[in-house]
Amino acid sequence: MMAEKIRVLLAKPGLDGHDRGIKVVARALRDSGMEVIYLGIRNTPEQIVETAIQEDVDVIGLSILSGSHMYHFPRILQLLKERKAEDIVVIGGGIIPQEDKEKLEKMGVKAIFGPGTSTQEIIKKIKELIGNKKN
C-alpha cells in the first residue's frame, strides 16, 4: 500500500518576524492533508535549503513581507541548484510588487501569492504543481 503525502517546507527567511500569514497557510495546508514542516522565522537561505533536502520536501514556501524578496528567492534557487535539488518547487507570498513578481517567476519561482489570496487557491496551485500523483 503506497501512502504518499505532499510535503511542504514553510519558512520565513531574513529578519522579518511577521508570521501570522504563514501560520494561517500552514494550518490550511495541514487541513488539506499535506505534511507541513514549519521552520518559523529568521531562517537563513542555507538553513532553508538544507532542511528542504533533509526533509525531502516537494515544495518550499517562503513568506516575505520585509522587501528582501529580490535577495532571498534568487539565493535559495541558487543554493538548490548547487545541491542538485532544482526539482524542489519554490513558491512564495507576501508584499511583492508586480514587476518583481514577473522577474522572480522568470528566475524559476513557480508561484507568488499576494495579499488577499485565499488559502484554497494556494492549495490548488500546489496540487497542480506537484501533480495528482500524491494525496
Partner: peptide, 25 residues
C-alpha cells in the same frame, strides 16, 4: 485529514547545518 504540522525542527536550528547531523520530521 491525514495532514500534519511538523514543528520540532524550529528548536533545532542551531545544529541543523552541521554536516554530521541529519534531522527528519
Amino acid at each position: 485529514t491525514g495532514g500534519a504540522l511538523l514543528g520540532d525542527r524550529i528548536r533545532m536550528l542551531e545544529v541543523s547545518l552541521d554536516s554530521n547531523v541529519f534531522i527528519r520530521s
